[in-house]
Amino acid sequence: MAPDVAARPTRAEMRMAAREQSRSQRRDAARAATRTALLRVALPSMAALGVAAAAAITVQGEADQRRAQAAGMVPDRAVTAADNTSARDAAQQALAGNDAPQASRADAREPLAGAQPAVAADPGSTDPAEAEAAEAPQQQRPAVSLPVAQHGLGETFGAAGTHWAKRHTGIDFPVDGGTPVMAVTDGTIRTQWNPSYGYMTILKMADGTEAWYCHLRSYKIRKGTVKAGDVIAFVGSSGNSTGPHLHFEIRPANGTGPVDPLPWFLAQGVDPR
Protein backbone atom coordinates (compact mmCIF):
# COMPACT_ATOMS: atom_id res chain seq x y z
CA MET A 1 0.00 0.00 0.00
CA ALA A 2 1.41 3.39 -1.00
CA PRO A 3 2.39 5.87 1.78
CA ASP A 4 0.10 8.89 2.49
CA VAL A 5 1.19 11.99 0.62
CA ALA A 6 0.56 15.32 2.33
CA ALA A 7 -1.85 17.47 0.43
CA ARG A 8 -0.26 20.55 -1.07
CA PRO A 9 -1.79 23.86 0.12
CA THR A 10 -3.84 25.70 -2.34
CA ARG A 11 -2.99 29.16 -3.54
CA ALA A 12 -5.80 30.64 -1.46
CA GLU A 13 -4.43 29.05 1.67
CA MET A 14 -0.95 30.31 0.92
CA ARG A 15 -2.22 33.86 0.43
CA MET A 16 -4.13 33.68 3.73
CA ALA A 17 -1.06 32.41 5.59
CA ALA A 18 1.03 35.25 4.08
CA ARG A 19 -1.51 37.82 5.24
CA GLU A 20 -1.58 36.43 8.79
CA GLN A 21 2.23 36.53 8.93
CA SER A 22 2.23 40.14 7.71
CA ARG A 23 -0.34 41.14 10.36
CA SER A 24 1.70 39.49 13.10
CA GLN A 25 4.85 41.28 11.99
CA ARG A 26 3.06 44.63 11.94
CA ARG A 27 1.69 44.06 15.44
CA ASP A 28 5.15 43.20 16.75
CA ALA A 29 6.60 46.31 15.13
CA ALA A 30 3.88 48.53 16.67
CA ARG A 31 4.52 47.10 20.15
CA ALA A 32 8.25 47.69 19.78
CA ALA A 33 7.65 51.31 18.68
CA THR A 34 5.36 51.96 21.66
CA ARG A 35 7.92 50.60 24.13
CA THR A 36 10.62 52.78 22.58
CA ALA A 37 8.45 55.93 22.84
CA LEU A 38 7.59 55.22 26.46
CA LEU A 39 11.25 54.77 27.33
CA ARG A 40 12.13 58.02 25.59
CA VAL A 41 9.55 59.91 27.72
CA ALA A 42 10.16 58.11 31.00
CA LEU A 43 13.93 58.32 31.08
CA PRO A 44 14.14 62.16 30.85
CA SER A 45 11.33 62.48 33.42
CA MET A 46 13.19 60.27 35.86
CA ALA A 47 16.33 62.26 35.21
CA ALA A 48 14.48 65.52 35.89
CA LEU A 49 13.07 64.15 39.13
CA GLY A 50 16.53 63.11 40.18
CA VAL A 51 17.90 66.59 39.46
CA ALA A 52 15.04 68.22 41.42
CA ALA A 53 15.62 65.90 44.36
CA ALA A 54 19.32 66.64 44.30
CA ALA A 55 18.62 70.38 44.20
CA ALA A 56 16.23 70.10 47.16
CA ILE A 57 18.84 68.19 49.13
CA THR A 58 21.43 70.83 48.24
CA VAL A 59 19.18 73.70 49.39
CA GLN A 60 18.26 71.90 52.61
CA GLY A 61 21.92 71.13 53.24
CA GLU A 62 22.88 74.77 52.70
CA ALA A 63 20.11 75.96 55.03
CA ASP A 64 21.19 73.51 57.74
CA GLN A 65 24.79 74.58 57.27
CA ARG A 66 23.91 78.27 57.64
CA ARG A 67 21.84 77.61 60.78
CA ALA A 68 24.66 75.64 62.30
CA GLN A 69 27.17 78.38 61.40
CA ALA A 70 24.91 81.04 62.93
CA ALA A 71 24.77 79.06 66.15
CA GLY A 72 28.59 78.73 66.13
CA MET A 73 28.48 74.95 65.97
CA VAL A 74 30.29 74.35 62.68
CA PRO A 75 33.07 76.36 60.99
CA ASP A 76 32.09 78.92 58.38
CA ARG A 77 33.02 77.59 54.95
CA ALA A 78 31.51 77.59 51.49
CA VAL A 79 29.20 74.69 50.64
CA THR A 80 29.89 73.17 47.25
CA ALA A 81 28.18 70.45 45.24
CA ALA A 82 30.88 67.99 46.29
CA ASP A 83 30.25 68.25 50.04
CA ASN A 84 26.50 68.92 50.18
CA THR A 85 25.81 65.63 51.93
CA SER A 86 28.58 66.00 54.49
CA ALA A 87 27.61 69.60 55.26
CA ARG A 88 23.99 68.64 55.73
CA ASP A 89 24.89 65.72 58.00
CA ALA A 90 27.21 67.90 60.08
CA ALA A 91 24.60 70.60 60.49
CA GLN A 92 21.88 68.13 61.44
CA GLN A 93 24.13 66.44 64.00
CA ALA A 94 25.07 69.81 65.48
CA LEU A 95 21.45 70.91 65.70
CA ALA A 96 20.38 67.59 67.20
CA GLY A 97 23.03 67.84 69.89
CA ASN A 98 22.19 71.40 70.92
CA ASP A 99 19.31 71.83 73.39
CA ALA A 100 19.32 75.65 73.23
CA PRO A 101 16.33 77.19 71.37
CA GLN A 102 17.16 78.14 67.80
CA ALA A 103 16.43 81.51 66.24
CA SER A 104 13.33 81.46 64.04
CA ARG A 105 12.57 83.54 60.96
CA ALA A 106 10.33 85.72 63.10
CA ASP A 107 13.23 86.34 65.48
CA ALA A 108 15.45 87.36 62.59
CA ARG A 109 12.96 90.03 61.53
CA GLU A 110 12.76 91.65 64.99
CA PRO A 111 14.17 95.22 64.92
CA LEU A 112 16.99 96.25 67.23
CA ALA A 113 15.93 97.39 70.67
CA GLY A 114 17.47 100.83 70.20
CA ALA A 115 15.74 101.37 66.86
CA GLN A 116 12.18 100.75 68.03
CA PRO A 117 9.92 103.83 67.73
CA ALA A 118 8.17 105.29 70.74
CA VAL A 119 4.81 103.71 71.41
CA ALA A 120 1.94 106.11 70.78
CA ALA A 121 -1.14 106.14 72.99
CA ASP A 122 -3.22 105.06 69.99
CA PRO A 123 -1.50 102.13 68.11
CA GLY A 124 -3.36 103.05 64.93
CA SER A 125 -2.35 106.75 65.01
CA THR A 126 0.94 108.22 63.86
CA ASP A 127 0.07 111.89 64.46
CA PRO A 128 2.61 113.36 66.97
CA ALA A 129 0.05 115.92 68.13
CA GLU A 130 -2.44 113.17 69.01
CA ALA A 131 0.23 111.19 70.84
CA GLU A 132 1.28 114.27 72.83
CA ALA A 133 -2.32 115.06 73.71
CA ALA A 134 -2.91 111.47 74.85
CA GLU A 135 0.20 111.49 77.05
CA ALA A 136 -0.63 114.86 78.63
CA PRO A 137 -2.69 114.62 81.83
CA GLN A 138 -6.34 115.31 81.22
CA GLN A 139 -7.44 118.71 82.46
CA GLN A 140 -9.98 118.31 85.24
CA ARG A 141 -13.23 120.25 85.13
CA PRO A 142 -13.27 123.01 87.81
CA ALA A 143 -15.62 122.60 90.75
CA VAL A 144 -16.86 126.19 90.38
CA SER A 145 -16.70 128.47 87.33
CA LEU A 146 -17.97 131.92 86.39
CA PRO A 147 -21.49 132.19 84.95
CA VAL A 148 -20.04 134.05 81.92
CA ALA A 149 -16.56 133.97 80.41
CA GLN A 150 -15.99 137.73 80.79
CA HIS A 151 -14.75 139.13 84.10
CA GLY A 152 -16.05 142.44 85.44
CA LEU A 153 -19.09 143.48 87.48
CA GLY A 154 -21.73 146.16 87.05
CA GLU A 155 -24.16 146.67 89.92
CA THR A 156 -23.06 144.90 93.10
CA PHE A 157 -25.01 143.30 95.92
CA GLY A 158 -26.96 145.71 98.20
CA ALA A 159 -26.79 148.72 95.88
CA ALA A 160 -29.69 151.17 96.19
CA GLY A 161 -31.59 152.52 93.22
CA THR A 162 -34.94 153.19 91.65
CA HIS A 163 -34.88 149.93 89.70
CA TRP A 164 -35.42 147.75 92.81
CA ALA A 165 -38.11 147.72 95.44
CA LYS A 166 -35.52 147.55 98.23
CA ARG A 167 -31.88 146.93 97.34
CA HIS A 168 -30.02 145.00 94.65
CA THR A 169 -30.22 141.29 95.50
CA GLY A 170 -27.37 140.02 93.38
CA ILE A 171 -24.47 141.02 91.12
CA ASP A 172 -24.71 142.05 87.47
CA PHE A 173 -22.42 140.95 84.62
CA PRO A 174 -22.60 143.65 81.89
CA VAL A 175 -22.24 141.47 78.79
CA ASP A 176 -23.86 141.51 75.36
CA GLY A 177 -27.14 139.84 74.58
CA GLY A 178 -26.71 136.28 73.36
CA THR A 179 -23.60 135.66 75.52
CA PRO A 180 -23.53 132.02 76.70
CA VAL A 181 -24.47 131.47 80.34
CA MET A 182 -22.78 128.58 82.17
CA ALA A 183 -23.51 126.44 85.22
CA VAL A 184 -21.33 127.69 88.07
CA THR A 185 -21.14 124.19 89.59
CA ASP A 186 -22.69 120.73 89.35
CA GLY A 187 -26.39 120.43 90.07
CA THR A 188 -29.87 120.23 88.65
CA ILE A 189 -31.68 123.05 86.91
CA ARG A 190 -35.23 124.20 86.29
CA THR A 191 -36.60 127.21 84.40
CA GLN A 192 -39.47 129.65 84.98
CA TRP A 193 -40.85 133.11 84.17
CA ASN A 194 -41.05 136.01 86.66
CA PRO A 195 -42.34 139.51 85.86
CA SER A 196 -39.34 141.14 87.57
CA TYR A 197 -36.62 138.60 86.77
CA GLY A 198 -37.94 137.72 83.31
CA TYR A 199 -36.80 134.35 81.97
CA MET A 200 -34.98 132.55 84.80
CA THR A 201 -32.84 129.47 85.27
CA ILE A 202 -32.43 128.14 88.81
CA LEU A 203 -29.47 125.83 89.54
CA LYS A 204 -29.83 123.76 92.72
CA MET A 205 -26.56 122.48 94.20
CA ALA A 206 -25.98 119.29 96.20
CA ASP A 207 -26.25 121.15 99.57
CA GLY A 208 -29.52 122.84 98.58
CA THR A 209 -27.98 126.22 97.71
CA GLU A 210 -29.56 127.82 94.64
CA ALA A 211 -28.00 130.03 91.96
CA TRP A 212 -30.45 132.27 90.10
CA TYR A 213 -29.78 133.43 86.53
CA CYS A 214 -32.14 136.24 85.51
CA HIS A 215 -33.17 138.43 82.52
CA LEU A 216 -32.29 135.64 80.07
CA ARG A 217 -33.07 135.70 76.36
CA SER A 218 -33.47 131.95 75.89
CA TYR A 219 -32.64 128.55 77.40
CA LYS A 220 -30.34 125.88 76.11
CA ILE A 221 -31.23 123.37 78.86
CA ARG A 222 -34.62 123.64 80.52
CA LYS A 223 -34.21 120.96 83.18
CA GLY A 224 -31.95 118.13 84.23
CA THR A 225 -28.48 117.47 85.61
CA VAL A 226 -25.59 119.71 84.55
CA LYS A 227 -21.86 120.00 85.23
CA ALA A 228 -19.81 123.10 86.07
CA GLY A 229 -19.07 124.98 82.85
CA ASP A 230 -22.01 123.57 80.84
CA VAL A 231 -23.80 126.19 78.74
CA ILE A 232 -27.37 126.36 80.00
CA ALA A 233 -28.83 129.64 78.59
CA PHE A 234 -28.10 132.96 76.84
CA VAL A 235 -28.00 136.53 78.16
CA GLY A 236 -30.97 138.79 77.40
CA SER A 237 -32.97 141.69 78.82
CA SER A 238 -36.30 140.11 79.75
CA GLY A 239 -38.39 141.24 82.75
CA ASN A 240 -37.59 144.42 84.68
CA SER A 241 -34.34 145.22 82.90
CA THR A 242 -32.76 148.36 81.40
CA GLY A 243 -30.59 146.46 78.88
CA PRO A 244 -28.80 143.16 78.19
CA HIS A 245 -26.93 141.83 81.23
CA LEU A 246 -26.88 138.79 83.52
CA HIS A 247 -28.33 139.23 87.00
CA PHE A 248 -26.88 136.49 89.25
CA GLU A 249 -27.98 135.58 92.79
CA ILE A 250 -26.94 133.05 95.47
CA ARG A 251 -29.68 131.83 97.83
CA PRO A 252 -28.70 129.46 100.71
CA ALA A 253 -30.79 126.38 101.45
CA ASN A 254 -31.88 127.73 104.87
CA GLY A 255 -34.32 130.12 103.18
CA THR A 256 -32.91 133.34 104.65
CA GLY A 257 -32.93 135.01 101.25
CA PRO A 258 -30.23 136.10 98.82
CA VAL A 259 -26.65 136.67 99.99
CA ASP A 260 -23.76 138.48 98.33
CA PRO A 261 -22.43 136.19 95.55
CA LEU A 262 -18.96 137.81 95.54
CA PRO A 263 -17.78 136.25 98.87
CA TRP A 264 -19.27 132.94 97.74
CA PHE A 265 -17.20 133.03 94.53
CA LEU A 266 -14.04 134.12 96.37
CA ALA A 267 -14.47 131.29 98.90
CA GLN A 268 -14.51 128.87 95.95
CA GLY A 269 -11.27 130.32 94.54
CA VAL A 270 -13.00 132.24 91.70
CA ASP A 271 -12.85 136.03 91.33
CA PRO A 272 -15.45 137.49 88.96
CA ARG A 273 -14.13 141.07 89.17
Rank of each mutant, 00 (worst) to 15 (best):
V51L: 14
A52L: 15
A52R: 03
A53F: 12
A54I: 00
A55P: 03
A55E: 14
A56H: 09
I57Q: 13
A63G: 10
D64A: 05
Q65H: 15
R66G: 00
R67F: 10
A68V: 00
Q69I: 09
A70H: 15
A70P: 04
A71Q: 07
G72D: 04
G72P: 04
M73S: 06
D76K: 11
V79S: 04
V79Y: 05
V79K: 00
A81T: 08
A81I: 07
A81N: 07
A81W: 12
A82V: 04
T85G: 04
A87Y: 03
R88A: 03
A90H: 00
A90W: 00
A90L: 00
Q93P: 04
L95I: 09
D99Q: 10
A100M: 08
P101L: 06
A103S: 13
A103F: 09
S104I: 05
R105P: 14
D107T: 03
A108S: 13
A108D: 14
A108F: 11
P111V: 06
P111Q: 02
A113Y: 06
A113K: 06
G114C: 09
G114Q: 13
Q116E: 11
P117Y: 06
P117A: 02
A118K: 07
A118Q: 10
V119P: 10
V119Q: 15
D122I: 00
D122N: 09
D122Y: 05
G124K: 12
G124D: 14
S125T: 01
S125D: 14
T126R: 08
D127A: 03
D127H: 01
D127N: 12
D127P: 10
A129G: 12
A129D: 15
E130I: 08
E130C: 01
A131T: 04
A131R: 02
A131V: 03
E132W: 02
A133R: 11
A134M: 08
A136R: 10
A136E: 13
P137C: 08
Q139A: 15
R141K: 04
P142R: 01
S145V: 14
V148Y: 02
A149P: 06
Q150M: 07
H151E: 11
G152L: 01
G154C: 03
E155G: 09
E155Q: 10
E155V: 12
G158S: 07
G161Q: 00
H163K: 11
A165P: 01
K166N: 14
R167H: 14
R167A: 15
H168F: 03
H168Q: 02
T169Q: 13
I171D: 07
F173Q: 00
D176F: 08
D176Q: 12
